[in-house]
């Protein structure tokens, strides 16, 4: 179907639907007592993580194991530890020499998965690169939305928070727009790049003016402190203007959802009580992540072309 998954740019609406449909079938399997499938027996998946992310790594690891693939975890924390050891390219070639079939890569440098895909024959799955993209997160989010609203086209989705530094926002906007949703980005102007309009999203600096119309309010994690520059005066001021609290939730449509990629800063972008409402589907997002990642591993490692049945 596709060799690598680097960006949501490469997926059409049909592609996304196929990933989601496959995930739905696979989730059936994971609901039964014997959860393991023999599908990727003998295949090896490497989780190459240059940024710590236990949640994403575990999700990929479990997905690969459910499909009977062998899993290698390779973690390197930061630029410095890598600089002292072997280079990114050396690591890539080492994995290649070991016969790895897929590399799931998380990296702080935007574009690193694309670079990696030019060096290896293995499939490369982007598990988050810099500020650039996090396509599996977007797919699991779209999957979670589709569970509640059969069709995404015409849905109003607000993505609120630090869009500028967010790979989750980039991937989600692309995927949601591809699926026909109306996306509005909400937050302080320092966190919302105006160029995001070219992605097909609207921009608003006023959460209250959009909250009544949204079917989904997707909250991004707001970094409490940025080392390099200040982007808003205080967490309190952020929460007052752009945080989702029960006062704002009360204005939402009855069936509108609250989503968050986690981990949440309770009291900043989301108040503690809101995070526990039934309309908050944060835990669904986590469990759907497993099915989406199984689906991708199956579709990507399941071979090169459509074949015949005998």
């Amino acid at each position: 179907m596709f060799k690598h998954l680097l960006s949501m740019d490469q997926l059409s609406a049909d592609d996304i639907t196929r990933v989601l449909d496959t995930a739905e079938s696979l989730r059936q399997v994971t609901d039964r007592p014997i959860k393991k499938l023999p599908t990727l027996r003998g295949r090896t998946v490497c989780n190459l993580f240059y940024e710590a992310s236990t949640r994403t790594r575990i999700s990929f690891e479990l997905a690969a194991k459910r499909l009977s693939a062998d899993v290698i975890n390779f973690s390197a924390d930061s630029k410095s530890s890598v600089a002292k050891g072997e280079s990114f390219k050396d690591t890539a070639w080492t994995l290649e020499a070991m016969g790895v079939d897929a590399i799931v890569v998380r990296h702080g440098s935007s574009g690193a998965p694309l670079q990696l895909s030019r060096w290896v024959k293995a499939s490369v799955l982007n598990a988050g690169d810099g500020w650039h993209e996090h396509p599996t997160q977007a797919l699991l989010d779209i999957f979670s939305i589709r569970e509640h609203f059969k069709d995404l086209s015409g849905l109003n989705v607000a993505i609120a928070g630090d869009v500028l530094h967010s790979r989750v926002a980039r991937s989600n906007v692309k995927g949601l727009v591809t699926m026909g949703a109306n996306v509005v980005l909400v937050g302080p102007p320092t966190l919302i790049p105006i160029q995001a309009r070219s992605w097909g999203a609207e921009i608003s600096y006023d959460l209250d003016s959009v909250i009544e119309d949204v079917d989904v309010c997707y909250l991004l994690r707001v970094q409490k402190e940025r080392a390099t520059e200040q982007l808003f005066p205080s967490n309190r001021e952020y929460a007052a203007n752009w945080g989702l609290d029960s006062r704002r939730v009360a204005k939402m449509k009855p069936d509108a959802l609250v989503m968050h990629p986690g981990p949440m800063n309770r009291g900043v972008e989301i108040s503690a009580d809101v995070s526990e409402l039934p309309r908050s589907i944060v835990l669904d997002q986590v469990s759907n992540g497993l099915a989406i990642r199984m689906s991708l591993l199956y579709l990507m490692l399941g071979g090169a072309e459509e074949g015949d049945v005998s």
Partner: peptide, 18 residues
């Protein structure tokens, strides 16, 4: 220019680079 990797504009925003 702090920490910038490329020209600031539509493409830097899309590529996710400062």
């Amino acid at each position: 220019a702090l920490g910038g990797q490329m020209h600031e504009g539509e493409r830097s925003i899309a590529l996710g680079m400062r």
